[in-house]
Design a protein around this nucleic acid. Structure first.
Length: 877
RNA sequence: GCCGGGAUGGCGGAAUUGGUAGACGCAGCGGACUCAAAAUCCGCCGGUAGUGAUACUGUGAGGGUUCGAGUCCCUCUCCCGGCACCA
């Protein structure tokens, strides 16, 4: 065997990558007469190492890039780094290393890993969001938004660790305690900057209908998140006064409801712990004050709010029902959020599940005001049909009796409006976006605090406000607060000494527009005309976990830029591929302080029961048990990522790419297992050896009259071209796992072809290999690129990178006879061979004459014969 | 809890969107080659019954629509993603 005949992945990949590097073949520009195609993967957080989720994401992107380039597009695939964020600060606390250095080191390492995969990235456009040249434009747009009132100041709730004296992220709160201190976490209200995303709620929702390039599931999730609802906002009146004796909120307590038809069934109201009425009630009511304090502890997360025990306490006060004048008891409820709506809700236990549970628990009255024809109301349990607005009508509701729920909503709204106590209102579940973070490693918020002038925006000429890169967070608050050199400045308005804001921006700000900056990474403005060429993006690819937050924020940001005249489009992403998560087992141990330590699956030995379920696990290092926490997304923070580099070293990048694409549909969730990598490698070896073995004996002939060739040659071409047809279909719908199957079938077909003596065999095999290499190239570019040259195809068709996509020969697909499936009463009973142009009558004749029909109908008359063209016949008896 | 998605052989998955369930591959079993092993090649491979042709059964569970359901509808179970400060 010569060295050529051996499949040496490392050598092949080095050679191919060297050729690409030398030709700078992935650099894209804006001067092309081809149509542009801009495809982007969601930029990675530089956590330290790539894991299989990244490999999957970027390989999908790379396959799409190479396929579309062959289809004749001017394609651009850039890459960058979401470089700000919490993990860098966490690493700093562990190692004492500055987040900046940690981040840059990680970027360098991960870039090397990406290059090993052979991705067609135009690295000349690389961006790191921690670069002042990038984040200065976050600051610039922030100031523009502040000017226009899109950014405003408001208080927001954060997790406060009273021992470490620091604000914690939700992730750092475990079972209500700080992850490092173990202290019980408190909620704290602090001033924060907000972006008015709610001003765009209507448009963000409306556009979803037309975004047909997005998966339905993502559009549905966003629509539900925005959550448009039609209801009535109205007030219960009261005469509760604050400590200075002033009537609170002019004696009106506002609530919002989508079920105004049930207002006559209100038996209590509840307010949030921070509501002014609750504060007033607590003044002379120590027990209530204690309860309010209790409500202020605990989680700020919606999931916890929704699952926690619903608790309440009476304020002792009442409010007045706006329609009946009845006195309604006022409660404080731990499930009412001050930050949502008006911080108060009406309670209708008969027609709301949560109110029902609350009323049962505290012995509050339950009053039925809606009935449904033919159904019986019961006080014993919640009945979900009361949710159904279409079927209900009012009872026990005075003048509203017998009105349908829908009509009653209008009538109640009109009556409330007449009294000046309420009106119909459209509300959104979506809340404004709080972007202030009390953290170091992020974009500094460009604000200066002056004792004389108040909060003053940093003038545009002073941008960027540069973040010092040598701070080392220690877990006690934002280290910027200790940096006098950063904090001390002069007020831009009065020139007196002032202090710089130390809060930084949410990292979601960084990822709102990086994909535009790729188009013009060196621009002197935020974006320039090159952005008009590449954007809107043709294809965005990223994990389904970003279905709501990142994608919604980026859409919002784009609209803000549009309204400022910076871009001309309404939506940034034409098509979206929401890649499924790559999951792996998670193992953990609780630390003494209540934190969690994670263990990598390779450090663990597991025991399974007889159905294969994991029942226990222990650490290989210390032999002691660890808890199995199920499976979840691969991430550095949970130590369950699998690195690609080991596999690449062992098998080569093409094997890893092929295996990853073959493993499942790009949008499907994937539980990681490397069983089968061996098979992917085996396939490439077979391909290599087959192609090299045939290289001396193939031709590239185009003047052959195929229909005059032998049956074996015609059969070979039929199989190859019909498989190609499937592969083309699957490329178009980005279902790459079945493209790999198709390629495997093609190789099987070629290997099984044994009529080598046929005069046309060298041309047929040559054609087959030519098709196969093109079909496989986007997935395994190194191997196919080198083989393409070894077979001499480049001399006829040019480089594989820019050769055209393969045409199907429709003539090869023509058949004289086709096989139909014969079903009797829907059960498979046989096959029928009919002429390709057989008419309905012809087919029925064949059916009636068939043995199967005689055998299975037992002489019973045929009721119907259903014929599905070119597929199947079903006889109904 | 709420919103979105998923469940198909021992395993990963396919089924061109209501028309042959299990393509393609992994693992396994049997055979060839070999002194032997590896590699490679050939064959088998959902379950039950049968030597076999074949029959029945089978796509998380239960019901329904249809000539025909993995695919559509209803109810349920479990798993994954998101829930606004992980990114």
């Amino acid at each position: 065997m010569t060295t050529d005949e051996l499949f040496q992945a490392n050598r092949i990949e080095e050679d191919a990558q060297a050729a690409w590097r030398a030709g700078d073949v992935y650099r894209a520009d804006e001067c092309s007469d081809k149509p542009k195609f801009y495809c982007v993967s969601m930029l990675p957080y530089p956590s330290g190492k790539l894991h299989m989720g990244h490999v999957r994401n970027y390989t999908i992107n790379d396959v799409m890039y190479r396929y579309l380039r062959m289809k004749g597009y001017n394609v651009l695939m850039p890459m960058g780094w979401d470089a700000f964020g919490l993990p860098a600060e966490n690493a700093a606390m562990k190692s004492g290393q500055a987040p900046a250095k940690w981040t840059y080191d990680n970027i360098a390492y991960m870039k090397k890993q990406m290059q090993a995969i052979g991705l067609a990235i135009d690295w000349s456009r690389e961006i790191a969001t921690c670069d002042p040249a990038y984040y200065r434009w976050n600051q610039w747009l922030f100031l523009k938004m502040l000017e226009k009132g899109i950014v405003y100041l408001k208080t927001g709730t954060v997790n406060w660790d009273p021992i470490d004296q620091t604000v914690l992220a939700n992730e750092q709160v475990i079972d209500g305690r700080g992850w490092r201190s173990g202290a019980l976490i408190e909620k704290r209200e602090i001033p924060m900057y907000y972006m008015r995303i709610t001003d765009y709620a209507e448009e963000l929702l409306a556009n979803l209908d037309n975004m047909t390039g997005w998966p339905e599931r993502v559009r549905t999730m966003q629509a539900n998140w925005i959550g448009k609802s039609f209801g009535v906002r109205f007030a219960f009146t009261h005469d509760i006064r604050d400590e200075r004796g002033a009537l609170i909120s002019d004696g009106k307590m506002y609530v919002f409801t989508t079920r105004a038809d049930t207002v006559m069934g209100v038996t209590f109201c509840a307010v949030a712990a921070e509501h002014p009425l609750a504060m007033a009630a607590a003044r002379n009511h120590p027990e209530l004050a204690a309860f309010i304090e209790e409500c202020k502890r605990g989680s700020v997360m919606e999931a916890d709010m929704a699952t926690m025990e619903k608790k309440g306490m009476s304020t002792g006060f009442s409010v007045t029902h706006p329609l009946t004048g009845a006195s309604v008891p006022l409660w404080v409820g731990n499930y009412v959020l001050m930050s949502y709506g008006d911080g108060a809700v009406m309670g209708v236990p008969a027609h709301d599940e949560r109110d029902f549970a609350f009323a049962k628990k505290y012995g509050l009255p339950i009053k039925q005001v809606i009935a449904v024809e033919g159904e019986t109301f019961s006080l014993n349990g919640w009945q979900e049909w009361y949710e159904d607005k279409q079927r209900g009508y009012c009872v026990n509701s005075g003048s509203y009796d017998s009105l349908s729920s829908v009509a009653a909503i209008d009538a109640v709204a009109a009556d409330l409006a007449a009294k000046g106590l309420g009106e119909k209102q459209v509300t959104f579940r979506l809340r404004d976006w709080g972007i202030s973070r009390q953290r170091y490693w992020g974009t500094p918020i460009p604000i200066i605090h002056c004792e004389t002038c108040g909060t003053v925006p940093v003038p545009e000429k002073d941008l960027p406000v540069v973040l010092p890169e040598d701070c080392v967070p220690d877990g006690n608050g934002n280290p910027l607060n200790k940096r006098e050199d950063f904090i001390n400045c002069l007020c831009p308005q009065c020139g007196k000494p002032a202090r710089r804001e130390t809060d930084t921006m949410d990292t979601f700000v960084d990822s709102c527009w990086y994909f535009m900056r790729y188009s013009c990474p060196d621009a002197e403005t935020m974006v320039d005309s090159r952005n008009d060429y590449w954007m809107p993006m043709d294809q965005y690819i990223g994990g389904i976990e970003h279905a709501i937050l990142h994608l919604l924020y980026a859409r919002f940001w784009t609209k803000v830029m549009r309204d400022m005249g910076l871009v001309k489009f309404d939506e940034p992403f034409d098509r979206l591929l929401a890649q499924g998560m790559v999951l792996n087992h998670i193992f953990e141990r609780r630390t003494d302080k209540g934190g969690v330590k994670y263990y990598a699956p390779e450090e663990i030995e597991i025991e399974r029961d007889n159905i294969g379920k994991i029942v226990s696990a222990h650490s290989l290092a210390d032999g002691k048990p660890v808890a199995y926490a199920g499976i979840g997304t691969m991430s550095k923070s949970r130590s369950n990522g699998v690195e690609p580099l080991d596999l690449i070293d062992r098998y080569g990048a093409d094997t890893v790419r092929l295996f990853m694409m073959f493993a499942s549909h790009p949008e499907a969730t994937l539980e990681w297992s490397d069983a089968g990598v061996e098979g992917a490698h085996r396939f490439l070896r077979r391909l290599w050896q087959y192609a090299i073995g045939k290289s001396a004996n193939i031709t590239v002939q185009t003047n052959i009259v195929w229909k005059e060739q032998s049956k074996a040659v015609r059969r070979l071409r039929f199989d190859l071209h019909s498989t190609l047809k499937q592969a083309n279909f699957d490329y178009e719908r980005a279902q790459y796992n079945t493209v790999v199957s198709a390629a495997m079938k093609m190789l099987n077909t070629l290997e099984a072809f044994n009529s080598e003596a046929d005069a046309a065999a060298p041309a047929a095999i040559g054609e087959g290999l030519n098709i196969l290499l093109r079909v496989l190239y986007p997935i395994v570019p190194h191997t196919t690129y080198i083989l393409w040259e070894k077979l001499g195809f480049d001399r006829v068709f040019g480089s594989l990178l820019d050769t055209t996509w393969t045409q199907i020969d429709e003539m090869a697909l023509q058949q004289d006879e086709i096989e139909l499936v014969l079903q009797i009463n829907g059960k498979l009973r046989g096959k029928l061979l009919v002429l390709a142009n057989a008419s309905r009558e012809d087919i029925e004749t064949v059916v009636r004459a068939s043995d199967e029909v005689a055998r299975y109908t037992n002489g019973k008359p045929m009721k119907k014969i259903i014929i599905v063209a070119e597929k199947l016949v079903n006889v109904v008896v």
